[in-house]
Design a protein around this nucleic acid. Structure first.
Lengths: 220, 220
DNA sequence: TAGCGTTTTGACCAATTAGTCAAATATGGC
DNA sequence: GCCATATTTGACTAATTGGTCAAAACGCTA
């Protein structure tokens, strides 16, 4: 997504493109550690010491790879938004409406299951007022969402979907799918260990798909 | 809800029951200020100075009313959970299923609209691992949710609702309704000023009700 | 093995943090 | 108006914070 003009290589390892194998490995370790910390406490609530400890690395060493806490945070958000945009962009105006939505919802549920911390990272960013991704939301994301909303509106106009506001439909999809990642702790508290059972993801997917798709499938 | 055994009056103003008018007023001012801060940055990301500044009060003065930052945080969460449980508890097993759900969804949307910061406070608490409300979730909330899930399951069994997992239905309702509070910044970025328009709340309610209720209304 | 760029670290700093405390000031009941 | 109590505050502390820096250790290649 590149929210800011990228910087070229400096004299430390802060360059965007890792120059050595060690850099690639350590940057990845740091990003993974930081994700788990930021996802829980947000940018302000997280400390560099925490991330360094999680990465099993000294603080100055960590800061050798990312000069500032913000830099790690930005990198993580960029990667997350990139991954999230893909399935939305893939919605095909020439496809079968319900099938296109089914595929999008499934992809989003899959992301929530495979990368729940990325979802929580984003949730924290939005809750804190979206200081970092605001421009991205108002620019590229809005453009893409408006484009897909127009497609959905077209489908509704042709009677291939029940009459529903396209934007609110998209919000409902985001809300229900991301909920499984963002509120995972609550879900676990309510459902207990069954959440870790083999069938749980399918059951959740089944329920979400049933509710949303039945809600938009044209009744006749 | 009273998550912890309440303490009786100490020698400072920290008593649960305000003893003077000034106490009642100032505690309320502090709670309101703290809500707006905690909602944005969570417990760890918020500072007492921030809250004091928001409350237009010196820090020692604020700490005269609430000895520790955590105390304000707990008080806010307790009030929020109390308000949230009410409409869920009101679901009537003898009512008409779709109408009962409609009422619950409407009540939850109303809370999201009237007290969005409370929703964001709770979201932050869950994202950070629910350290404060964990016991409440596993105890009273789980009991209530299981009870209501059983009611829904009964309705499904009688063919008065489309076959859907009751717990996941509840999650879908929570997700879609709270989304309007928790992701308000994102929604504003995508929809612009129309969010502040007079009809927006109704439009959102309309969409959520349509999607969820169509998804559970028995098809025949 | 000498040399050089890369990686790692201990020690450090200035700013911010939660919370304390004793003293000063306001307030209400008489 | 007096006084006991409630409220407010400036000054403070100890701990934590993000980040710096110079030096040391490492590792690769000539």
């Amino acid at each position: 997504m590149t929210m800011q003009p990228g910087k070229t290589a400096g004299k430390t390892a802060e360059a965007k493109r890792p120059r050595t194998r060690t850099q690639a490995v350590n940057r990845e370790i740091i990003l993974e550690a930081a994700l788990s910390v930021f996802a829980k406490h947000g940018l302000r609530g997280s400390t560099v010491d925490q991330i360094a400890s999680e990465a099993e690395m000294s603080k100055p060493n960590l800061l050798y790879y990312f000069r500032r806490k913000q830099d790690i945070y930005r990198a993580l958000l960029e990667a997350t938004l990139d991954a999230w945009l893909e399935p939305l962009a893939a919605i095909d105006p020439d496809g079968e409406p319900v099938e296109e939505l089914r595929r999008y919802i499934s992809a989003k549920l899959d992301l929530a299951r495979r990368r729940p911390e990325a979802s929580r990272l984003f949730a924290n960013e939005i809750l804190s007022g979206a200081p970092v991704v605001e421009d991205f939301l108002k620019g590229p994301l809005k453009a893409l969402v408006d484009e897909k909303a127009a497609i959905v509106r077209g489908w509704v106009g042709e009677g291939r979907l029940a009459p529903v506001d396209p934007h609110h439909l998209i919000f409902a999809i985001w809300a229900t799918t991301q909920h499984y990642a963002d509120f995972d702790v609550q879900i676990r508290a309510l459902l207990g260990t069954q959440v870790d059972g083999p069938g749980f993801s399918d059951q959740a997917a089944q329920a979400v798909l049933t509710i949303i798709l039945s809600g938009v499938r044209p009744r006749d």
